[in-house]
Nucleic acid binder design. Structure first.
Lengths: 206, 206
DNA sequence: GATTGGTGTAACTCATGAGTGTAATTACCG
DNA sequence: CGGTAATTACACTCATGAGTTACACCAATC
Protein backbone atom coordinates (compact mmCIF):
# COMPACT_ATOMS: atom_id res chain seq x y z
CA UNK A 1 0.00 0.00 0.00
CA UNK A 2 1.75 3.15 -1.10
CA UNK A 3 2.34 5.53 -3.86
CA UNK A 4 5.89 5.03 -5.02
CA UNK A 5 6.83 7.93 -7.24
CA UNK A 6 3.55 8.77 -8.87
CA UNK A 7 5.04 11.95 -10.19
CA UNK A 8 8.34 12.04 -12.04
CA UNK A 9 9.66 15.58 -11.46
CA UNK A 10 12.00 16.05 -14.37
CA UNK A 11 10.20 14.73 -17.43
CA UNK A 12 8.14 15.91 -20.33
CA UNK A 13 4.39 15.85 -20.07
CA UNK A 14 4.15 12.90 -22.39
CA UNK A 15 6.75 10.93 -20.48
CA UNK A 16 4.98 11.59 -17.22
CA UNK A 17 1.72 10.53 -18.72
CA UNK A 18 3.23 7.29 -19.90
CA UNK A 19 4.83 6.67 -16.53
CA UNK A 20 1.59 7.21 -14.70
CA UNK A 21 -0.30 5.00 -17.04
CA UNK A 22 2.24 2.33 -16.37
CA UNK A 23 1.82 2.83 -12.63
CA UNK A 24 -1.89 2.23 -13.03
CA UNK A 25 -1.24 -0.98 -14.91
CA UNK A 26 1.29 -2.17 -12.36
CA UNK A 27 -0.99 -1.49 -9.41
CA UNK A 28 -3.71 -3.31 -11.29
CA UNK A 29 -1.46 -6.27 -11.98
CA UNK A 30 -0.50 -6.60 -8.32
CA UNK A 31 -4.08 -6.53 -7.14
CA UNK A 32 -5.26 -8.86 -9.88
CA UNK A 33 -2.59 -11.33 -8.88
CA UNK A 34 -3.48 -11.14 -5.21
CA UNK A 35 -7.25 -11.10 -5.39
CA UNK A 36 -8.18 -11.99 -8.93
CA UNK A 37 -9.38 -9.70 -11.67
CA UNK A 38 -13.08 -9.88 -10.96
CA UNK A 39 -12.61 -9.36 -7.24
CA UNK A 40 -10.63 -6.19 -7.77
CA UNK A 41 -12.52 -2.91 -8.08
CA UNK A 42 -11.18 0.20 -9.72
CA UNK A 43 -11.72 1.89 -6.40
CA UNK A 44 -9.13 -0.42 -4.88
CA UNK A 45 -6.61 0.28 -7.60
CA UNK A 46 -7.16 3.97 -7.08
CA UNK A 47 -6.69 3.67 -3.32
CA UNK A 48 -3.46 1.76 -3.80
CA UNK A 49 -2.15 4.70 -5.81
CA UNK A 50 -3.61 7.41 -3.59
CA UNK A 51 -5.69 8.77 -6.41
CA UNK A 52 -9.38 8.70 -7.22
CA UNK A 53 -11.22 6.36 -9.48
CA UNK A 54 -12.01 9.20 -11.82
CA UNK A 55 -8.32 9.85 -12.39
CA UNK A 56 -7.76 6.29 -13.52
CA UNK A 57 -10.07 6.96 -16.42
CA UNK A 58 -7.71 9.69 -17.46
CA UNK A 59 -5.20 6.99 -18.37
CA UNK A 60 -7.28 4.03 -19.43
CA UNK A 61 -10.66 3.61 -21.04
CA UNK A 62 -11.92 0.70 -19.02
CA UNK A 63 -11.07 -1.95 -16.50
CA UNK A 64 -10.49 -4.42 -19.27
CA UNK A 65 -8.01 -1.99 -20.76
CA UNK A 66 -5.93 -2.32 -17.64
CA UNK A 67 -5.89 -6.07 -17.88
CA UNK A 68 -5.09 -5.96 -21.56
CA UNK A 69 -2.37 -3.41 -20.96
CA UNK A 70 -0.81 -5.75 -18.41
CA UNK A 71 -0.83 -8.51 -20.97
CA UNK A 72 0.79 -6.35 -23.63
CA UNK A 73 3.56 -5.19 -21.35
CA UNK A 74 4.07 -8.72 -20.12
CA UNK A 75 4.36 -10.15 -23.59
CA UNK A 76 6.77 -7.40 -24.55
CA UNK A 77 9.18 -8.53 -21.87
CA UNK A 78 8.78 -12.17 -22.78
CA UNK A 79 9.79 -11.33 -26.32
CA UNK A 80 13.42 -10.93 -25.30
CA UNK A 81 13.54 -14.44 -23.94
CA UNK A 82 11.91 -15.76 -27.07
CA UNK A 83 14.52 -14.08 -29.22
CA UNK A 84 17.40 -15.50 -27.19
CA UNK A 85 16.10 -19.03 -27.44
CA UNK A 86 15.85 -18.70 -31.19
CA UNK A 87 19.57 -18.22 -31.64
CA UNK A 88 20.37 -21.06 -34.04
CA UNK A 89 24.07 -20.99 -33.22
CA UNK A 90 23.51 -22.37 -29.72
CA UNK A 91 23.09 -26.05 -28.92
CA UNK A 92 19.49 -27.15 -28.53
CA UNK A 93 19.81 -28.00 -24.85
CA UNK A 94 21.22 -24.57 -24.18
CA UNK A 95 18.32 -22.95 -25.95
CA UNK A 96 15.80 -24.95 -23.96
CA UNK A 97 17.53 -23.95 -20.76
CA UNK A 98 17.45 -20.30 -21.83
CA UNK A 99 13.75 -20.50 -22.55
CA UNK A 100 12.96 -22.12 -19.22
CA UNK A 101 15.13 -19.71 -17.25
CA UNK A 102 13.69 -16.73 -19.06
CA UNK A 103 10.13 -17.90 -18.64
CA UNK A 104 10.74 -18.53 -14.97
CA UNK A 105 12.06 -15.01 -14.49
CA UNK A 106 9.18 -13.64 -16.49
CA UNK A 107 6.45 -15.43 -14.60
CA UNK A 108 7.95 -13.97 -11.42
CA UNK A 109 7.25 -10.41 -12.53
CA UNK A 110 3.95 -8.67 -11.86
CA UNK A 111 2.88 -8.64 -15.49
CA UNK A 112 4.10 -12.12 -16.21
CA UNK A 113 2.25 -13.49 -13.21
CA UNK A 114 -0.90 -11.75 -14.36
CA UNK A 115 -0.77 -13.52 -17.69
CA UNK A 116 -0.12 -16.84 -16.01
CA UNK A 117 -2.78 -16.48 -13.33
CA UNK A 118 -5.71 -14.49 -14.67
CA UNK A 119 -8.07 -16.52 -16.78
CA UNK A 120 -8.37 -15.01 -20.20
CA UNK A 121 -12.15 -15.32 -20.11
CA UNK A 122 -12.19 -11.81 -18.69
CA UNK A 123 -11.06 -10.31 -21.99
CA UNK A 124 -13.19 -9.61 -25.03
CA UNK A 125 -13.23 -12.29 -27.70
CA UNK A 126 -10.93 -10.58 -30.18
CA UNK A 127 -8.36 -9.58 -27.62
CA UNK A 128 -8.48 -13.06 -26.23
CA UNK A 129 -7.65 -14.66 -29.54
CA UNK A 130 -4.78 -12.24 -30.06
CA UNK A 131 -3.41 -13.17 -26.67
CA UNK A 132 -3.82 -16.83 -27.27
CA UNK A 133 -1.83 -16.54 -30.45
CA UNK A 134 1.09 -15.06 -28.56
CA UNK A 135 0.98 -17.77 -25.95
CA UNK A 136 0.76 -20.41 -28.65
CA UNK A 137 3.94 -19.00 -30.14
CA UNK A 138 5.86 -19.61 -26.96
CA UNK A 139 4.40 -23.05 -26.64
CA UNK A 140 5.33 -23.82 -30.21
CA UNK A 141 8.86 -22.62 -29.62
CA UNK A 142 9.42 -25.08 -26.79
CA UNK A 143 7.82 -27.92 -28.71
CA UNK A 144 10.03 -27.24 -31.68
CA UNK A 145 13.14 -27.23 -29.52
CA UNK A 146 12.09 -30.51 -27.95
CA UNK A 147 11.48 -32.07 -31.35
CA UNK A 148 14.86 -30.88 -32.49
CA UNK A 149 16.47 -32.34 -29.40
CA UNK A 150 14.84 -35.68 -30.02
CA UNK A 151 15.91 -35.66 -33.66
CA UNK A 152 19.55 -35.20 -32.72
CA UNK A 153 19.06 -37.63 -29.81
CA UNK A 154 20.00 -35.11 -27.18
CA UNK A 155 16.60 -35.92 -25.75
CA UNK A 156 14.82 -39.13 -25.02
CA UNK A 157 11.87 -39.78 -27.38
CA UNK A 158 8.64 -38.34 -26.03
CA UNK A 159 5.52 -36.41 -27.00
CA UNK A 160 6.71 -32.80 -27.32
CA UNK A 161 3.20 -31.53 -26.77
CA UNK A 162 2.82 -33.25 -23.44
CA UNK A 163 6.27 -32.40 -22.22
CA UNK A 164 5.77 -28.76 -23.10
CA UNK A 165 2.50 -28.86 -21.17
CA UNK A 166 4.30 -30.25 -18.14
CA UNK A 167 7.00 -27.62 -18.28
CA UNK A 168 4.70 -24.64 -18.76
CA UNK A 169 2.24 -25.97 -16.23
CA UNK A 170 4.93 -26.23 -13.62
CA UNK A 171 6.23 -22.76 -14.48
CA UNK A 172 2.83 -21.11 -14.63
CA UNK A 173 2.09 -22.46 -11.19
CA UNK A 174 5.01 -20.68 -9.59
CA UNK A 175 3.20 -17.43 -8.78
CA UNK A 176 0.48 -19.43 -7.07
CA UNK A 177 2.77 -20.66 -4.32
CA UNK A 178 5.72 -18.30 -4.43
CA UNK A 179 3.67 -15.19 -3.75
CA UNK A 180 4.47 -14.90 -0.06
CA UNK A 181 6.43 -12.79 2.44
CA UNK A 182 9.86 -14.17 1.58
CA UNK A 183 9.66 -15.98 -1.73
CA UNK A 184 12.19 -18.47 -2.99
CA UNK A 185 14.57 -16.61 -5.32
CA UNK A 186 13.40 -17.12 -8.84
CA UNK A 187 16.90 -18.17 -9.97
CA UNK A 188 16.96 -21.05 -7.50
CA UNK A 189 13.63 -22.24 -8.77
CA UNK A 190 14.80 -22.16 -12.35
CA UNK A 191 17.86 -24.28 -11.58
CA UNK A 192 15.85 -26.89 -9.68
CA UNK A 193 13.35 -27.00 -12.49
CA UNK A 194 16.03 -27.50 -15.10
CA UNK A 195 17.67 -30.21 -13.05
CA UNK A 196 14.37 -32.01 -12.66
CA UNK A 197 13.19 -31.65 -16.21
CA UNK A 198 16.51 -32.69 -17.71
CA UNK A 199 17.72 -35.40 -15.34
CA UNK A 200 14.54 -36.44 -13.54
CA UNK A 201 14.20 -37.51 -9.93
CA UNK A 202 15.83 -40.89 -10.31
CA UNK A 203 19.64 -40.89 -10.04
CA UNK A 204 21.53 -42.16 -13.06
CA UNK A 205 22.46 -45.76 -12.43
CA UNK A 206 26.21 -46.02 -12.89
CA UNK B 1 -26.35 -28.09 -22.28
CA UNK B 2 -28.89 -30.62 -21.14
CA UNK B 3 -30.64 -32.11 -18.22
CA UNK B 4 -29.31 -35.60 -17.82
CA UNK B 5 -31.64 -37.41 -15.43
CA UNK B 6 -32.67 -34.64 -13.11
CA UNK B 7 -35.30 -36.89 -11.61
CA UNK B 8 -34.45 -40.39 -10.42
CA UNK B 9 -37.71 -42.35 -10.81
CA UNK B 10 -37.25 -45.17 -8.34
CA UNK B 11 -35.77 -43.63 -5.22
CA UNK B 12 -36.77 -42.33 -1.84
CA UNK B 13 -37.48 -38.66 -1.42
CA UNK B 14 -34.23 -38.10 0.45
CA UNK B 15 -32.22 -39.98 -2.15
CA UNK B 16 -33.81 -37.91 -4.90
CA UNK B 17 -33.07 -34.74 -3.04
CA UNK B 18 -29.46 -35.75 -2.61
CA UNK B 19 -29.19 -36.69 -6.26
CA UNK B 20 -30.57 -33.36 -7.35
CA UNK B 21 -28.30 -31.47 -5.03
CA UNK B 22 -25.39 -33.29 -6.55
CA UNK B 23 -26.61 -32.45 -10.04
CA UNK B 24 -26.58 -28.79 -9.05
CA UNK B 25 -23.03 -29.06 -7.78
CA UNK B 26 -21.89 -30.88 -10.89
CA UNK B 27 -23.46 -28.37 -13.25
CA UNK B 28 -21.85 -25.64 -11.18
CA UNK B 29 -18.45 -27.31 -11.33
CA UNK B 30 -18.60 -27.63 -15.11
CA UNK B 31 -19.52 -24.02 -15.60
CA UNK B 32 -16.99 -22.78 -13.07
CA UNK B 33 -14.29 -24.70 -14.86
CA UNK B 34 -15.30 -23.34 -18.24
CA UNK B 35 -15.96 -19.71 -17.37
CA UNK B 36 -14.66 -19.16 -13.89
CA UNK B 37 -16.62 -18.89 -10.67
CA UNK B 38 -17.25 -15.16 -10.73
CA UNK B 39 -18.28 -15.17 -14.37
CA UNK B 40 -20.89 -17.84 -13.79
CA UNK B 41 -24.34 -16.75 -12.68
CA UNK B 42 -26.82 -18.93 -10.87
CA UNK B 43 -29.12 -18.27 -13.78
CA UNK B 44 -26.69 -20.06 -16.07
CA UNK B 45 -26.44 -23.05 -13.77
CA UNK B 46 -30.22 -23.20 -13.64
CA UNK B 47 -30.49 -23.02 -17.42
CA UNK B 48 -27.99 -25.83 -17.81
CA UNK B 49 -30.29 -27.99 -15.68
CA UNK B 50 -33.53 -26.77 -17.22
CA UNK B 51 -34.74 -25.37 -13.93
CA UNK B 52 -35.02 -21.87 -12.51
CA UNK B 53 -32.72 -20.02 -10.22
CA UNK B 54 -35.19 -20.17 -7.35
CA UNK B 55 -35.18 -23.96 -7.45
CA UNK B 56 -31.45 -24.02 -6.94
CA UNK B 57 -32.00 -22.39 -3.58
CA UNK B 58 -34.00 -25.43 -2.49
CA UNK B 59 -30.79 -27.42 -2.58
CA UNK B 60 -28.13 -24.94 -1.58
CA UNK B 61 -28.08 -21.83 0.57
CA UNK B 62 -25.86 -19.69 -1.58
CA UNK B 63 -23.61 -19.58 -4.57
CA UNK B 64 -20.62 -20.02 -2.34
CA UNK B 65 -22.26 -23.17 -1.00
CA UNK B 66 -22.10 -24.65 -4.46
CA UNK B 67 -18.42 -23.92 -4.77
CA UNK B 68 -17.74 -25.27 -1.32
CA UNK B 69 -19.82 -28.37 -2.03
CA UNK B 70 -17.73 -29.00 -5.13
CA UNK B 71 -14.61 -28.77 -3.04
CA UNK B 72 -15.93 -31.19 -0.43
CA UNK B 73 -16.95 -33.77 -3.00
CA UNK B 74 -13.66 -33.31 -4.78
CA UNK B 75 -11.60 -33.84 -1.68
CA UNK B 76 -13.63 -36.89 -0.77
CA UNK B 77 -12.57 -38.56 -3.98
CA UNK B 78 -8.96 -37.55 -3.54
CA UNK B 79 -8.96 -39.25 -0.14
CA UNK B 80 -8.84 -42.68 -1.74
CA UNK B 81 -5.68 -41.84 -3.61
CA UNK B 82 -4.13 -40.46 -0.46
CA UNK B 83 -4.89 -43.66 1.40
CA UNK B 84 -3.36 -45.81 -1.31
CA UNK B 85 -0.14 -43.87 -1.34
CA UNK B 86 0.17 -44.26 2.40
CA UNK B 87 0.48 -48.02 2.22
CA UNK B 88 3.80 -48.55 4.00
CA UNK B 89 4.27 -52.02 2.53
CA UNK B 90 4.85 -50.67 -0.95
CA UNK B 91 8.19 -49.35 -2.21
CA UNK B 92 8.51 -45.58 -2.11
CA UNK B 93 8.72 -45.17 -5.85
CA UNK B 94 5.56 -47.16 -6.27
CA UNK B 95 3.78 -44.94 -3.78
CA UNK B 96 4.90 -41.79 -5.54
CA UNK B 97 3.65 -43.21 -8.82
CA UNK B 98 0.32 -44.06 -7.22
CA UNK B 99 -0.03 -40.55 -5.88
CA UNK B 100 0.78 -38.94 -9.21
CA UNK B 101 -1.51 -41.26 -11.17
CA UNK B 102 -4.33 -40.77 -8.71
CA UNK B 103 -3.93 -37.01 -8.64
CA UNK B 104 -3.86 -36.93 -12.41
CA UNK B 105 -7.10 -38.90 -12.60
CA UNK B 106 -8.60 -36.70 -9.93
CA UNK B 107 -7.72 -33.40 -11.55
CA UNK B 108 -9.41 -34.68 -14.70
CA UNK B 109 -12.79 -34.92 -12.98
CA UNK B 110 -15.19 -32.00 -12.77
CA UNK B 111 -14.78 -31.50 -9.05
CA UNK B 112 -11.05 -32.07 -9.07
CA UNK B 113 -10.60 -29.55 -11.84
CA UNK B 114 -12.64 -27.03 -9.91
CA UNK B 115 -10.32 -27.27 -6.94
CA UNK B 116 -7.30 -26.97 -9.17
CA UNK B 117 -8.61 -24.05 -11.23
CA UNK B 118 -10.81 -21.84 -9.11
CA UNK B 119 -8.91 -19.43 -6.91
CA UNK B 120 -9.82 -19.96 -3.32
CA UNK B 121 -10.26 -16.22 -2.78
CA UNK B 122 -13.89 -16.73 -3.66
CA UNK B 123 -14.57 -18.64 -0.43
CA UNK B 124 -15.10 -17.19 3.02
CA UNK B 125 -12.06 -17.00 5.25
CA UNK B 126 -12.84 -19.96 7.50
CA UNK B 127 -13.78 -22.27 4.68
CA UNK B 128 -10.68 -21.19 2.84
CA UNK B 129 -8.39 -22.16 5.67
CA UNK B 130 -10.09 -25.53 5.99
CA UNK B 131 -9.54 -26.13 2.32
CA UNK B 132 -5.97 -25.04 2.44
CA UNK B 133 -5.31 -27.52 5.21
CA UNK B 134 -6.56 -30.38 3.05
CA UNK B 135 -4.41 -29.28 0.16
CA UNK B 136 -1.42 -28.93 2.43
CA UNK B 137 -1.93 -32.53 3.51
CA UNK B 138 -1.56 -33.77 -0.04
CA UNK B 139 1.44 -31.58 -0.58
CA UNK B 140 3.00 -32.86 2.62
CA UNK B 141 2.40 -36.43 1.56
CA UNK B 142 4.37 -36.02 -1.63
CA UNK B 143 7.16 -34.15 0.09
CA UNK B 144 7.45 -36.90 2.67
CA UNK B 145 7.62 -39.56 0.03
CA UNK B 146 10.31 -37.64 -1.80
CA UNK B 147 12.33 -37.22 1.39
CA UNK B 148 12.00 -40.91 2.05
CA UNK B 149 13.13 -41.69 -1.46
CA UNK B 150 16.18 -39.51 -1.06
CA UNK B 151 17.01 -41.09 2.29
CA UNK B 152 17.08 -44.55 0.79
CA UNK B 153 18.79 -43.13 -2.32
CA UNK B 154 16.06 -44.19 -4.67
CA UNK B 155 15.95 -40.52 -5.57
CA UNK B 156 18.59 -38.00 -6.43
CA UNK B 157 19.11 -35.36 -3.69
CA UNK B 158 16.89 -32.34 -4.21
CA UNK B 159 14.63 -29.87 -2.41
CA UNK B 160 11.40 -31.83 -1.80
CA UNK B 161 9.41 -28.64 -1.50
CA UNK B 162 10.42 -27.41 -4.93
CA UNK B 163 10.03 -30.75 -6.60
CA UNK B 164 6.55 -31.16 -5.12
CA UNK B 165 5.70 -27.70 -6.41
CA UNK B 166 6.83 -28.70 -9.90
CA UNK B 167 4.81 -31.88 -9.85
CA UNK B 168 1.60 -30.36 -8.54
CA UNK B 169 2.00 -27.33 -10.73
CA UNK B 170 2.26 -29.50 -13.80
CA UNK B 171 -0.71 -31.60 -12.71
CA UNK B 172 -2.90 -28.68 -11.70
CA UNK B 173 -2.36 -27.18 -15.09
CA UNK B 174 -3.83 -30.14 -16.93
CA UNK B 175 -7.45 -28.96 -16.90
CA UNK B 176 -6.33 -25.64 -18.37
CA UNK B 177 -5.22 -27.20 -21.64
CA UNK B 178 -6.93 -30.58 -21.72
CA UNK B 179 -10.44 -29.16 -21.55
CA UNK B 180 -11.27 -29.43 -25.24
CA UNK B 181 -13.40 -31.40 -27.69
CA UNK B 182 -11.28 -34.55 -27.68
CA UNK B 183 -8.96 -34.46 -24.71
CA UNK B 184 -5.85 -36.57 -24.32
CA UNK B 185 -6.78 -39.62 -22.22
CA UNK B 186 -5.87 -38.89 -18.65
CA UNK B 187 -4.00 -42.21 -18.34
CA UNK B 188 -1.66 -41.30 -21.18
CA UNK B 189 -0.88 -38.02 -19.53
CA UNK B 190 -0.08 -39.69 -16.24
CA UNK B 191 2.38 -42.07 -17.85
CA UNK B 192 4.18 -39.31 -19.72
CA UNK B 193 4.34 -37.26 -16.54
CA UNK B 194 5.79 -40.15 -14.57
CA UNK B 195 8.32 -40.86 -17.26
CA UNK B 196 9.41 -37.24 -17.33
CA UNK B 197 9.48 -36.69 -13.60
CA UNK B 198 11.37 -39.88 -12.91
CA UNK B 199 13.76 -40.13 -15.82
CA UNK B 200 13.86 -36.58 -17.15
CA UNK B 201 14.20 -35.52 -20.75
CA UNK B 202 17.81 -36.42 -21.19
CA UNK B 203 18.47 -40.05 -22.16
CA UNK B 204 20.58 -42.06 -19.73
CA UNK B 205 24.14 -42.04 -21.01
CA UNK B 206 25.20 -45.68 -21.29
C1' DG C 1 -61.54 -35.42 -3.66
C1' DA C 2 -59.63 -32.54 -0.12
C1' DT C 3 -55.16 -32.01 2.37
C1' DT C 4 -50.48 -31.43 2.75
C1' DG C 5 -45.74 -30.88 1.92
C1' DG C 6 -42.30 -30.97 -1.28
C1' DT C 7 -41.34 -28.63 -5.61
C1' DG C 8 -41.56 -25.09 -8.88
C1' DT C 9 -42.20 -20.20 -10.90
C1' DA C 10 -42.68 -15.10 -11.79
C1' DA C 11 -41.64 -10.95 -10.09
C1' DC C 12 -39.61 -8.59 -6.94
C1' DT C 13 -35.52 -6.12 -3.78
C1' DC C 14 -31.18 -4.62 -3.10
C1' DA C 15 -26.20 -4.06 -3.18
C1' DT C 16 -22.34 -3.48 -5.92
C1' DG C 17 -19.36 -1.70 -9.03
C1' DA C 18 -18.28 0.15 -13.83
C1' DG C 19 -18.33 4.11 -16.17
C1' DT C 20 -19.83 9.35 -16.91
C1' DG C 21 -20.84 14.54 -16.65
C1' DT C 22 -19.51 18.60 -14.86
C1' DA C 23 -17.52 22.16 -12.50
C1' DA C 24 -14.19 23.57 -9.52
C1' DT C 25 -9.29 23.25 -8.16
C1' DT C 26 -4.44 22.47 -8.37
C1' DA C 27 0.11 21.65 -10.51
C1' DC C 28 3.48 22.85 -13.40
C1' DC C 29 5.47 23.14 -18.33
C1' DG C 30 6.71 26.49 -21.63
C1' DC D 1 3.18 34.17 -15.11
C1' DG D 2 -0.27 32.52 -18.09
C1' DG D 3 -2.50 28.76 -19.83
C1' DT D 4 -3.20 24.16 -20.27
C1' DA D 5 -3.01 19.73 -18.49
C1' DA D 6 -3.94 17.02 -14.54
C1' DT D 7 -6.75 15.94 -10.66
C1' DT D 8 -10.53 16.03 -7.47
C1' DA D 9 -15.28 16.08 -5.55
C1' DC D 10 -19.44 14.25 -6.13
C1' DA D 11 -23.52 13.08 -7.83
C1' DC D 12 -25.15 10.60 -11.09
C1' DT D 13 -26.71 6.33 -14.54
C1' DC D 14 -27.03 1.77 -15.50
C1' DA D 15 -26.47 -3.20 -15.82
C1' DT D 16 -25.91 -7.24 -13.46
C1' DG D 17 -26.61 -10.76 -10.46
C1' DA D 18 -27.46 -12.66 -5.67
C1' DG D 19 -30.96 -13.70 -2.75
C1' DT D 20 -36.21 -13.33 -1.31
C1' DT D 21 -41.42 -12.91 -1.15
C1' DA D 22 -45.64 -14.70 -2.40
C1' DC D 23 -48.00 -17.71 -4.78
C1' DA D 24 -49.14 -21.84 -8.14
C1' DC D 25 -48.67 -26.64 -8.97
C1' DC D 26 -48.80 -31.58 -8.37
C1' DA D 27 -48.30 -36.07 -6.45
C1' DA D 28 -49.14 -39.05 -2.91
C1' DT D 29 -51.75 -39.83 1.11
C1' DC D 30 -55.99 -40.02 4.18
Amino acid sequence: MGNKSWTTPGASRDAQREGKRRAVLQAGARLFNDQGYEQTSLEEIATALNITKRTIYYYVDSKEDILFGCHLLGLEFLGETMAQSQDQSLPVMERIALLIRGYCAWVSTDFGATIAMVREQSLSADRRTALRASKAEVDFQLRSLISEGIAESSLRPCDPRLVAAVVFGALNWIPHWNRVENPVPQEDIAEQYLQLVFQGMVPAQS
